[in-house]
């Protein structure tokens, strides 16, 4: 069983190939790369290095967001096109949950964070139970301060994971004091192999044609329309 994993949900790029529960190859870059230019090249390169032809891929896992709108779309478009034309199952995995895998050995809550500008974040809270990750607080787009208030109520140690945590470290410590732990840099890398790992325990694959990113946020234009309360049409 050969798995291809793709994560382009944020500025890092990660592609992995897993064969029979063993990682063959994983390429992750934290550089600000242009996903549109690099992502398919990285897939091709990984396949070539792993000596795998496209038709040998048995299943595809992709980070479905939330994250950068364009980034998520590129990964999802590539993954769904490959899955459809190769006629292989497709699995979408939360980009926040995939990040939380990095903190799986932490004894407490794991909070994955992706910056969403203007003091907002995309965040999801998980807890390890055996080899599983249990969702404690649903993936969402929210004000950081609000999230931290909610987290304080749990009154237990929390590990913050993600490259963007450092942007908000002082605010996090202000709100949570001793409870807050910040992951070291090596645990902030989104890994496509984590997406594969989570996909392997998923109940069932996505319906490929209708599969879309989890933006966790409506567009500004839609929000304005709602604000105006105009409902013509």
């Amino acid at each position: 069983m050969i798995w291809l994993g793709i994560d382009t949900a944020n500025s890092p790029l990660s592609v992995a190939i897993v064969k029979d529960d063993g990682l063959l190859i994983e390429e992750s870059s934290m550089m600000k790369v242009n996903h549109s230019l690099r992502a398919m090249l990285a897939v091709e390169e990984a396949c070539r290095k792993a000596d795998i032809t496209p038709s040998e891929i048995d299943a595809i896992a992709v980070s479905e967001g939330p994250g950068s709108y364009t980034g998520v779309r590129i990964g999802v478009t590539i993954a769904k096109t490959l899955a459809w034309t190769l006629d292989k199952p497709l699995y979408g995995v939360s980009s926040l949950k995939a990040l939380a895998v990095n903190g799986q050995l932490f004894n407490g809550l794991i909070c994955s964070v992706i910056d969403a500008r203007r003091s907002n974040v995309y965040a999801g809270v998980y807890r390890a139970k055996g080899t599983e990750l249990i969702n404690v607080l649903e993936d969402q787009h929210c004000a950081l301060a609000e999230l931290l208030e909610k987290l304080r109520e749990y009154n237990e140690a929390i590990l913050f994971v993600g490259e963007d945590v450092k942007l908000h470290e002082s605010t996090i410590r202000e709100h949570l004091g001793e409870l807050a732990h910040v992951a070291p840099f090596a645990l902030n890398v989104p890994r496509a192999s984590s997406a594969i790992l989570l996909a392997q325990s998923a109940d069932q694959p996505e319906t490929v044609h209708t599969f879309t990113p989890q933006y966790k946020r409506i567009t500004e234009a839609e929000a304005n329309l709602v604000k105006k309360g105009s409902s013509h049409e």
Binding site: P54, T81, T85
Partner: peptide, 11 residues
């Protein structure tokens, strides 16, 4: 473009 690339690569 990315759909075209994936389709071209796969086939």
């Amino acid at each position: 473009i990315n759909a075209a690339k994936a389709f071209a690569f796969a086939n």
